[in-house]
Design a protein around this nucleic acid. Structure first.
Lengths: 258, 258
DNA sequence: AATTTATATTTGTAAGACAAATTAACATTT
DNA sequence: AAATGTTAATTTGTCTTACAAATATAAATT
């Protein structure tokens, strides 16, 4: 006669389904590039309706855990999550954190300085020839005066990522990917003039040399120089931007206006 | 005669809606605890069906950006995202990263050591009296022999979070929250014996004193001692666990079996 | 043989209905 | 009059059914 109802499953069905699927992915039952059953199939297996399954899948899609394609050979597949994809995901979270807690980019920048210094020290110890080659390649890209500023910024990101990777501490470089990405808006704002590009490229050149020579003190000093330089440019740019902001008009129609 | 269709919006409707809503939250149009329009209302405003709106909302719910309640005073509300909620979100991502890239917890642990050392240095410089009080309070909790091991672990987490916060670099402490959380499984595994608890508590006591005295060299040394001690315990525990693992049976029915 | 055309499969979107939860107002009883 | 129970309204949660759009495979046609 004991009912054994216990604590009722309060979570919504779609959440329960999403959690089970995520668990399966995390645990390795579903590996990268595996194809999930079709939505109809999942609905039958979980004994819920297809919209419920879809809501669950959207939850996972928001986390970049799965991708979907239509058609006969389509379906839903498990994503292979490398540092890139996951840190992209992390970046949106830290962007949120920055915007909602009103942390200045300067504060983020100081964190980056500390952590990237750490990377540099480790990189000086652990860098391999192939690490150095990668950094050389990006450096050459940056020396080309014909690339757009977007391309320059992308090469800049890859250069700093290469430093992080050269630390050969995967967790650390994972976190660094996020910080580098989080500060891209700053880099985009300021890397449009040739003179600044040249300064940055020259710094990279010296930085690479010092890592090559395993001179970690010099490396961290150059890094500090660069980040402080960027901060300074950023503050100037922000001052200009403030003025433009004052007489700007609303561009997109507001969905939530009355 | 120019059609101007341009690149067709290839993203699904639910994704577009989700992106617009997220943008509104990020930008500040929708503030914390604001209530969104009802789903029917949103469907009308965005000119899509309610299931589409719901899929969009689930995407945001997966990111912990919103919460929903049923009923007349219910609806969908914007979450206030503090360090806690966001780092919880980050933790699942880094857990994924750890599990999918086969990074050993030892490697994560070494990253934590480096970063927490940095926190300690900054904490020695910047700690305020209220920071120290917080750490004292957690330390007293840990000295109580009557608490469960879960409570002990929780107090341990709060102690280390307090160190991170004492650095007064919010971005750094944000990242540290994630790392501390990511290593909780290890802590849970080993903090069940009184003897180990006492050793850890004693280390915390010395750590707190050195931060109080602003002796950053001593602080980082003690921290290193603790983390290496934990690593050692973890390796022993893992060796034991390997044996148990071999004769374990599948607990949950596999949804994806044939 | 190459190209085009059907066709089947699968996700994406829509509409309508009902269930469940929860609040607010109202009625009832003490 | 106050406490309590009841009802009604509102909102999210879920289900059902249907159709649209994309796309790979197989068939048909040139």
């Amino acid at each position: 006669m004991s009912l054994e109802i216990g604590p009722v499953n309060k979570a919504s069905l779609s959440k329960q389904v999403a959690d089970q699927l995520q668990e399966a992915i995390l645990e390795g039952t579903l590996k990268a590039d595996d194809r999930l059953p079709t939505e109809d199939d999942l609905a039958k297996r979980f004994q819920v309706s297809r919209p419920t399954i879809r809501e669950a899948l959207k939850r996972l899609a928001a986390k970049n855990l799965i991708r979907s394609r239509r058609g006969p050979a389509g379906g839903t597949f498990v994503n292979h999550l490398g540092k890139g994809e996951l840190s992209e995901h992390l970046t949106t979270a830290s962007t949120l954190f920055v915007s909602m807690n009103q942390i200045s980019l300067t504060e983020v920048s100081s964190t980056r300085l500390e952590m990237e210094s750490l990377c540099c020290q480790l990189a000086c110890q652990n860098r391999t020839p192939s690490d150095l080659e990668l950094m050389e390649a990006e450096l050459e890209q940056q020396q080309n005066r014909n690339i757009t500023s977007e391309e320059f910024c992308a090469a800049d990101v890859r250069f700093h990522r290469a430093i992080a990777d050269a630390s050969h501490n995967r967790m650390l470089s994972f976190i660094m990917y996020t910080l580098i990405e989080a500060l891209q808006p700053v880099a985009n704002m300021i890397a449009y003039r040739f003179r600044e590009r040249e300064i940055i490229t020259a710094q990279h050149k010296r930085l690479l040399a010092s890592i090559k020579n395993q001179d970690s003190n010099l490396a961290t000093a150059i890094l500090k120089e660069q980040i402080e330089y960027l901060d300074q440019l950023h503050q100037e740019a922000q001052a200009n931007h403030q003025q433009k902001e004052s007489n700007k008009t609303v561009s997109a129609p507001n969905i939530f206006g009355r």
